[in-house]
């Protein structure tokens, strides 16, 4: 029963990451792409890691997975921010995405 919940979470995370990959190709503007990467990827990572934690039960490994999740939750938005800041300060133009 609890395994089914973990599988459900992992499936949801895989769908999230599929949306992130599609968004990486669909948007023509760099800042839209970086938004997709920052938000969707982090949410997908969080969800899939909670799924793994449930799957591995109450053990030493589960604590390690939670520690990895905490690390990536801190570092992934930071590195995305560093990339966006570097692009903005180097003069990458901000284009409005045309309405369709």
């Amino acid at each position: 029963m609890i395994d089914l919940l973990a599988y459900l979470l992992i499936t949801i995370a895989l769908i999230f990451m599929a949306l992130g990959v599609i968004g990486l190709f669909r948007f023509k503007d760099f800042y839209s792409r970086i938004l997709i990467s920052a938000k969707i990827e982090t949410v997908g990572f969080l969800t899939i890691m909670i799924g793994f934690t449930i799957l591995s039960g109450l053990s030493y490994a589960a604590m390690k997975i939670l520690l990895i999740t905490l690390m990536v939750m801190i570092t992934n938005p930071l590195s995305t921010h560093a990339i966006a800041r570097s692009a903005f300060l180097s003069g990458y133009p901000i284009n409005q995405e045309p309405r369709r």
Partner: peptide, 12 residues
Amino acid sequence: WDRLLGLNAISA
């Protein structure tokens, strides 16, 4: 920067 974004996504 697109390449760097890809590097970040691949590392996650």
